[in-house]
Design a protein around this nucleic acid. Sequence first.
RNA 1: AAGAGCAGCCGGGUAAUCGCGUAUAAGAAAACUUAUAUGAGGAAAGUCCGGACACCCAAGGGCAGAACGACGGAUAACGUCCGCCGGGGGCAACCUCAGGACCAGUGCCACAGAAAAGUAAACAACCUGUUUUUCAGGUUCAGGUGCAACGGUAGUGUAAAAGACUACAGGGGGUAUUGUGAAAUACCCGCCGGGUAAACUCCGUUCGGGUGCAAGAUUGAAAUAAAGGCUAAGGUGACCCGCCAUCUUUAAAAAAAUCGCUUGAGCAAUAAGGUAACUUAUUGUCGAGACAGAUGAUUACCUAGAAACAGAAUCCGGCUUACGAACUGCUCUUUUUA
RNA 2: CGGGACGUAGCGCAGCCUGGUAGCGCACUACCUUGGGGUGGUAGGGGUCGCAAGUUCAAAUCUUGUCGUUCCGA
Length: 118
Amino acid sequence: MLKKKYRLKKYSAVMATYRVNNVISDKNVFIYLGKEKIDYSLPVKFAFIVSKKISKSAVKRNKIKRRMRESIRLLLKNSSIKNINKYISVVIVAKKHLLDSDFDSVYSSLSTLLSEKA
RNA sequence: AAGAGCAGCCGGGUAAUCGCGUAUAAGAAAACUUAUAUGAGGAAAGUCCGGACACCCAAGGGCAGAACGACGGAUAACGUCCGCCGGGGGCAACCUCAGGACCAGUGCCACAGAAAAGUAAACAACCUGUUUUUCAGGUUCAGGUGCAACGGUAGUGUAAAAGACUACAGGGGGUAUUGUGAAAUACCCGCCGGGUAAACUCCGUUCGGGUGCAAGAUUGAAAUAAAGGCUAAGGUGACCCGCCAUCUUUAAAAAAAUCGCUUGAGCAAUAAGGUAACUUAUUGUCGAGACAGAUGAUUACCUAGAAACAGAAUCCGGCUUACGAACUGCUCUUUUUA
RNA sequence: CGGGACGUAGCGCAGCCUGGUAGCGCACUACCUUGGGGUGGUAGGGGUCGCAAGUUCAAAUCUUGUCGUUCCGA
């Protein structure tokens, strides 16, 4: 789980990130990238969205969110995704395909998307 | 031994590495770091009932409305629970029932049938008179219909019949006894013209009304502005653009913070009362409290193969629904052996 | 968190209040009309009435539970 300073808290901030409309995706997730930073001392903030359309069960939605958070935590620790540091915020939206995947596929798709395409 | 019925119990464990929420302590005194402790359920779910708590409205009462409905109890309360009565099911253990009233009124009972409730026979049949037929009168036992037929079976009786009369059983009413009571038992009375209220309705009981922790309280900022976006609807206009108004958005910055927020009809043990639900007393104990929302990832071993349903959001008491594996106790039936 | 509405033929809807026969339009099939097609006409097929239980002689309809879809308020 990420610490609180890495979390994007406000609904309005998420909507602002959507409005930039800089999207990358694969079969598992959409990733919305926010505006570029002015002050580089601030950390990148993440938000994770798993809608009710993906599953009615709160347990399954929570599981997907936890896997995504853990992946981002490991990626930040490895500092393998340095090139996303220029963005203020990142919103990650899960797709229905994630429901049947395991942790490794979540980790690999997030790492390739964020390190290569961003 | 086999097959049933009822009740109970559990909801993976240990270790290692990385990591998260909360509390406390220390350092720092802004962010933060370290240590320790602690961190989802039996249904947390559905939101179907009942409360607590909070605010708004309200003089009191009625009407209306809603829910409930054998009886006695439990409870803060309940549509829940316990016991018991009656109906139904089962050989039995046991299970199950929205279980008041169609003698207040109004409806409905398709098709079939003579007739579906009205002092009722438009089919048919029986008997009597007339007697070729027809017709008139009496009757509804038997027939057939239907979920249901104007009380059942057997006899007496009669022109043919009929509770008209008798016996037996059924329903209803009255009296007596037993029980707190629903009711049961006994005796007596020919009293016996359907069903349906999860049809309207009537009777009884309960509920001040509404809103729900995003309830509500406190502190601070702003003082109704600024910058955009949009045009389906409003104004101006013949129409379009435009303008006004409306609507809507605004990243780190003022765009909130704190309280409510978890010590409670709490949990555990023992004792007493009660058939039980439950109650009382004593002792011990504190077991999540977030605010885009904390329990995860990887590995090894054990169990049986690390398996299901499933994630607290103000808090309790229930109900309902979903669901995994192993096992324990009591009871019943059948068979076999002693 | 709270409150509504709707599940009926492949699709869109009636019927439910007041219980006994499930119907309408489009689509589908066959035939007629045409040189052929469309249009038009005639006939026909197709429905566990979301699911489960109860009330009733009888349930799409009444009652309860449950599943799904969708809307509204904060």
